[in-house]
Design a protein around this nucleic acid. Structure first.
Lengths: 248, 248
DNA sequence: TCTCTACTTTGATATGGATCAAATCCGAAG
DNA sequence: CTTCGGATTTGATCCATATCAAAGTAGAGA
């Protein structure tokens, strides 16, 4: 879970530690060269807003390090998270120049940005990129639909367990594995942000976390570090089918 | 709302009444010809299951007429709808040969199917099609995220009002307009299916429909036909921002 | 025409999670 | 080390929606 100490120098597309999963995953050498020409890096501090809903966005980007969120806010302040962006996830729309959701850095975030106009040109001429974008968008759509089941039908306890297992799995796969017996990870979100993710209040999140701890499903080290001794036990609490949970 | 009487003969890609919004929207004449060669039609009766979650699917398809749904089911029977497919919507995944959700016809449905393998080949060689697929997938993702806000944060009353305005808007746009003062439409879903859409029980759906009727926001003609005298009044109940509601 | 049955409405009651309120914890800044 | 303020936990109460139950409705088929 430890953030690898990256220097900007490390992060060109060819050597990018996330390259295999990011937008340039399928690219040929000459295509990577083109991408190199239109890219630059940006850093945001934890809590900083990257773009406000409705703002123009003159770039698209891959997350290199850190965690960002997409959230929708209603007039009276009710908030719902609709996207959780970890390393290698993509931000932005090729065909739209403004963004529909607030994008916020919840930890320190580094983005690998591509200027919008030339990136859009590349899509039209580079099948590898538009293919990869389609794949990533379909994965996001699957994630959104699993999330809809969580929001619409799961109990508070199931929501928390599902969230923890999602984070555990994504952190594990970022390190190139699957969660085994002993899993430990840092929560990248406050209780309030978790509540926005899960469609709950922060008090309910806190209570259910305490309940899972009391019932020995998880251990809490401090407020943010989670230790899962038996991952199957956690999975049992999610309400999901037993078979791995990966969408067929 | 009346289903136009289509014969199969009418429905080749070039003349297709939904062509401008479907997968072939951007295609050139020769590309349409290729599509013609790999397509065929299928019809399903109301209530029929088109594909079960996990089943192999040897085709992708556009909805020509009728309404289909995507639903997820938990082990104990809790169900959440995660997709509502109207005319011109797309079913299937280019890169996956099985499907993650139950696909069900809720009215009589006609699909324009394309055999999977050759369609997949076309994607790789036809930028117009992969572009169009990306656009459609991004639109679906936007819809899913708006749906997530509904599931996570809206009250039962707001959910019903939102659902009705979504249906009204989609029906109106299928006829090439926007909902004006007097809108009338047929609900394509039972109360139970509406409940699965909204993350509610069917009893709550029924009660809230009655409440909106009592409060003169809608009229009910029979069980399924909705008349909205003042669309703005309905919009006020959705909890959405005033400005049209289309995502920026 | 008269069932039959699936769909829908309505009523009574229970309850999970929200809301309001107050401690407590803990890391960062002095 | 101490202080401060945001983050978190915990408690008490409320209420929106679920659940259980029963009655009403309408369309398809005999």
């Amino acid at each position: 879970m430890q953030q690898k100490p990256l220097t900007l120098k490390d992060m060109d597309c060819a050597d990018c530690p996330i390259r295999h999963r990011a937008v340039c995953a399928r690219c040929e050498a000459d295509e990577l060269e083109q991408l190199e020409a239109i890219k630059y890096y940006r850093k945001y501090a934890a809590g900083e807003v990257i773009v406000w809903a409705g703002d123009k966005m003159d770039f698209v980007a891959s997350v290199v390090a850190g965690v960002a969120t997409l959230t929708q806010t209603m007039e009276d302040g009710r908030r719902q998270m609709v996207g959780l962006l970890l390393a290698s996830d993509f931000i932005g729309r090729p065909n739209r120049d403004s963004v529909a959701y607030d994008v916020t850095a919840t930890t320190d975030v580094t983005l690998c940005c591509f200027r919008r106009k030339p990136f859009h040109e590349m899509i039209k001429t580079t099948p590898n990129i538009s293919q990869r974008l389609l794949d990533m968008t379909l994965d996001e759509l699957d994630a959104a639909r699993e999330w809809m089941l969580l929001l619409g039908r799961k109990t508070a306890r199931e929501k928390i367990a599902s969230f923890l297992s999602i984070i555990a799995r994504r952190e594990a796969s970022a390190l190139g594995g699957v969660p085994g017996k002993d899993v430990a990870f840092e929560l990248p979100l406050t209780r309030e942000a978790m509540a926005d993710y899960l469609g709950l209040t922060l008090e309910t999140v806190s209570r259910q976390m305490s309940a899972l701890k009391r019932d020995q499903v998880i251990q809490l080290e401090g407020k943010r570090r989670i230790v899962v001794a038996d991952f199957d036990l956690l999975m049992d609490e999610t309400g999901d089918d037993a078979d791995g949970g990966v969408l067929i």
